[in-house]
Every structure is written in structure tokens, then in C-alpha cells.
Design a binder for these strands. Structure first.
Length: 328
DNA sequence: AAGCTGAACAACCGCGCGTAG
DNA sequence: GCTACGCGCGGTTGTTCAGCT
């Protein structure tokens, strides 16, 4: 047996609100308040609307001091960092932005901000593949490589097309995913010990975009274990030199050379300066980013846990083929 | 000018949670 | 402790409109 409906669906109006309906609702609530019962409210006013619909209309549109559109850079930054911190808790995010509603922020994220952040990455990467020759061939080669031997190449494209780097790494008979836009950062060992209320925001949400993060324990844990207000994901490699990775950077400009954050491909602003370690470089066109890149075997294990089947690999491969064909 | 496509926004739906009885 | 109910939340769908072909 399903859940009982909150109202008589046959007798309620759906779809866009008319100015008359808006006026009725607004006027009543301004005079009498909601009365603590949204379900009963439409009947009192004489509106043929579901109580939930009234509530939504009031909260998202009619109540005073609501701002629509025109998100500032500062608001963008707040939304992004909170999203990375707590995931899609839109109501919490909205609480930090006066005048903004959770619905508004959610829509803004889904339609614009997400693309602003990650769409550019995909586009840049696609361009990089095309520019560097036959992308499909390259992907096929990567796939073969990942299936047949232990040496792996990841190609990654940076902001403003400036930082293309390849990472070569031997590993222990693990299959390396060849999906190029995945940017892998390790999850800290304590990641599974977050309070249940947090769930796994980062893993659940940003992993959709092929991004994985680790968390910096010192940032968000405290003595009583209850407050996680400063919880922030950070990019942090292993402290041991043995885990450092050499990254060969092709065609990167001085900004990239001087600022290893650029390898984060536009995501760097999410982290704040204090969370990014500095990188070293040598005279051979390589950039040592031991502080930014993870323990590679850990990455492989994570990938194996999330992308395990040949079918999934094939699906990704088809996707790449489509991208490649479109680019030609 | 017409049709198509995608972006932006509004609204709906279903579920989980808290709470009163 | 159980149940029913209302609220709030997040995901999804629907609608409108502008830009492009």
C-alpha cells in the first residue's frame, strides 16, 4: 500500500501560478500567517491548490526579500565551497545566502554553476584530445595499455588549455580506467568515519563528475567529534616522498609552472590557498606535485571499486568515440 | 518564417523525519 | 511503542523562451 496523498489530486490546480493566486496567498499569509498548517491553508483562502504547492510558492517566490537571479562571484564561491563540503544540502547552503532559496540555488547549480565548473573541463579535454591527434586512437591505445600491461598514461587538460600533462605510473596488475577526465584524489583513511549525518557528500556528489577528494582531518574534526562546521575537502598528497609523482607537463605556461594548483583544472578555487601545498619543478619540463597527487595505487583500488566491469568500460569507450566523432 | 535545441526557471513528487495522539 | 499526519528536503519533470539552423 502506498503513501496516502496529501490532498485530493483531482481537485487541485497544477502548473504555473496566476497573479490572482499569488495575491490571494500573499495577502492571507501577510495578515494571518500560515497558521502552522499548510495543508489546511488553501481551503481557508479558497485556493484550489495543494498545501505543499502553496508552501513552495510562498517560500520560493512570494515571501519578502527574495532575490532572483544575478548570483555574484562571492555567492558562486560560497555555493561551490559549501557544495564540496556538505554536498547537495540546498537548504543549508541557502541559509548562508540571505534572500536565496534552496530551490533557486539548486536550479542555479544544476543549470549553470555545475557547467561552469565541470563543463569547461570536459570541453577543454575534448579539445586537447582532438588537438593532439586522433583522440580515438589515443583512447584505444590507453585502453589497450590498461588492459595489457602495467604502464599507464593519464592525459589531463588544464584551465585555458595551458596545462596538458601526462602521468606515467607502474602499478600492480590493476586495470587502469582510461576515462581521461577523471581527476583522482585520494580519500583519507578516516573518510569512512564521518558522522552519519554527513553521509558521503563528496564521494556521492562530486564523483559524478569524476572527481574524488580526500579530507584533511585536522580541518574538520574536533575533540568531541560532534562539530564539523569547518569540514572542508582538501587536496593533499602523501607526506612521504616515496609517494610523490612526477608529472610531465607539456605546453604549460609560466602560471602553471609557478602554480601547481593549475593542474586542478579550474577546481583550485574551491580549496583556498592554505590547503594547496606547493610543488617543485626541475629543469626537465617536469613538475613534481607530490603534494597534489595521491598515492597512485590507492587511486587504482578506488577505481576498481567503482568501475569494475568490462561493460562499464565499453560504455565509457562508446562515449569517447562519440565525442571523438563529433570533434572531427 | 518555421522548426529545433538547449538553457533557465518553476513546480511537482515522493520520501524521510519529527511529533502528537 | 505504534501510527498517522504534516513539514521540509532533494530529485525530477514540465514549461517557457531565446538563439541557432
Amino acid at each position: 500500500m502506498g503513501r496516502a496523498p496529501c490532498c485530493d489530486k483531482a481537485n487541485v490546480k497544477k502548473g504555473p501560478w496566476s497573479p490572482e493566486e499569488d495575491a490571494k496567498l500573499k495577502s492571507y499569509i501577510e495578515k494571518h500567517g500560515t497558521g502552522g498548517n499548510w495543508i489546511a491553508l488553501p481551503q481557508k483562502i479558497g485556493l484550489k491548490r495543494c498545501g505543499k504547492s502553496c508552501r513552495l510558492r510562498w517560500l520560493n517566490y512570494l515571501r519578502p526579500n527574495i532575490k532572483h537571479g544575478g548570483f555574484s562571484e562571492e555567492e558562486d564561491r560560497i555555493i561551490c565551497s559549501l557544495y564540496v563540503s556538505i554536498g547537495s544540502r540546498w537548504s543549508i547552503i541557502a541559509a548562508q545566502l540571505p534572500g536565496r532559496t534552496d530551490n533557486d540555488i539548486k536550479n542555479y547549480w544544476n543549470t549553470r554553476l555545475k557547467k561552469k565548473l565541470f563543463g569547461k573541463q570536459r570541453k577543454d579535454q575534448q579539445q586537447a584530445i582532438t588537438r593532439r591527434g586522433n583522440g580515438l586512437k589515443q583512447m584505444q591505445q590507453m585502453k589497450r595499455s590498461s588492459e595489457n600491461n602495467n604502464t599507464t598514461t593519464i592525459t589531463h587538460m588544464g584551465e585555458n588549455n595551458s596545462a596538458i600533462f601526462s602521468l606515467n605510473q607502474s602499478h600492480n596488475n590493476n586495470i587502469l580506467p582510461y576515462w581521461p577526465q577523471q581527476q583522482h584524489l585520494p580519500l583519507a583513511s578516516h573518510y569512512n568515519n564521518l558522522p552519519p549525518s554527513f553521509g558521503k557528500p563528496i564521494e556521492n556528489d562530486l564523483s559524478k563528475f569524476g572527481v574524488q577528494f580526500m579530507d584533511q582531518e585536522s580541518v574538520y574534526s574536533n575533540n568531541n567529534g560532534n562539530e564539523y562546521g569547518n569540514f572542508l575537502p582538501v587536496i593533499q598528497g602523501q607526506s612521504s616522498n616515496s609517494n610523490s609523482q612526477m608529472v610531465e607537463v607539456e605546453n604549460y605556461n609560466m602560471a602553471t609552472y609557478e602554480d601547481p594548483r593549475r593542474v586542478l583544472c579550474g577546481l583550485e578555487f574551491l580549496y583556498g590557498d592554505h590547503q594547496i601545498m606547493s610543488g617543485n619543478n626541475d629543469q626537465m619540463g617536469s613538475l613534481q606535485v607530490s603534494s597534489c597527487l595521491p598515492n597512485y595505487e590507492e587511486i587504482l583500488l578506488q577505481d576498481l571499486s567503482t568501475t569494475t566491469t568490462t561493460q562499464e568500460y565499453e560504455a565509457k569507450f562508446d562515449d569517447l568515440r562519440i565525442l571523438d566523432n563529433n570533434a572531427l
